[in-house]
Design a protein around this nucleic acid. Sequence first.
DNA 1: GGTGTATTTCAATAATCGTTGAAATATGGA
DNA 2: TCCATATTTCAACGATTATTGAAATACACC
Lengths: 113, 113
Amino acid sequence: MEKTDAVAALGALAQHNRLDVFRLLVQAGPQGMPAGAVADALELAPNTLTFHFDRLRMAGLVAARRDGRSIIYAARYELMNALIAFLTENCCRGACAPAAARKPARKSAKVPA
Amino acid sequence: MEKTDAVAALGALAQHNRLDVFRLLVQAGPQGMPAGAVADALELAPNTLTFHFDRLRMAGLVAARRDGRSIIYAARYELMNALIAFLTENCCRGACAPAAARKPARKSAKVPA
DNA sequence: GGTGTATTTCAATAATCGTTGAAATATGGA
DNA sequence: TCCATATTTCAACGATTATTGAAATACACC
């Protein structure tokens, strides 16, 4: 991951509403959630939410697909893991060794339900 | 870690110069680096650097101590690890299980040199 | 085609952010 | 005390950000 991408991802997450949105999607799992459901859950105006979705999407943290009238947003775990790897990979000049100990989250996973 | 703290930490890292500063300190290890050395390494004006140090410090990502005329800044690995834990701990409703697999970086470590 | 729902676009606004320059403060040494 | 170095404070500026309201677009159903 490039530094510019990391700054973009960090900036996208560095806002209360967007962090809420992202964590909601992270918890929703790979199948994602319709925009309207996110709006209801977080009590955000639909246009405000579009603005935040855009920023998350441009940072690569979220993917969108249409399903009928709804647009389904889903977290992109790959990018979250890349960001975490970027933050830890140059740690301590080897004085502490967390990067190797970390296993990235699977890109996608079977949903229990 | 509270959401507000996470937003503060993410916001502190979401800027090119600050991300450079933080990563430089992360790589410098627990003993830290004088402000002037950081300014030289990144070619930043001293007052600009103070501004960024302040933001990193207020976010808890960096600690400062005086040594003679210099002020030594050091990364706070504990907070970096707390942030990573916060981002991953609610992941996927258990669909992927990265949080348990991650070991935090040690708070401080002996420096090889 | 027409209606209702879901989401996005656009324009406007206040608030915050990053950088600069000049001046101030703090420390160590002669 | 006086001087040089290291860092911080302050005021100002243009740029970006988050939110709002009104209008537009996209789709499904009748």
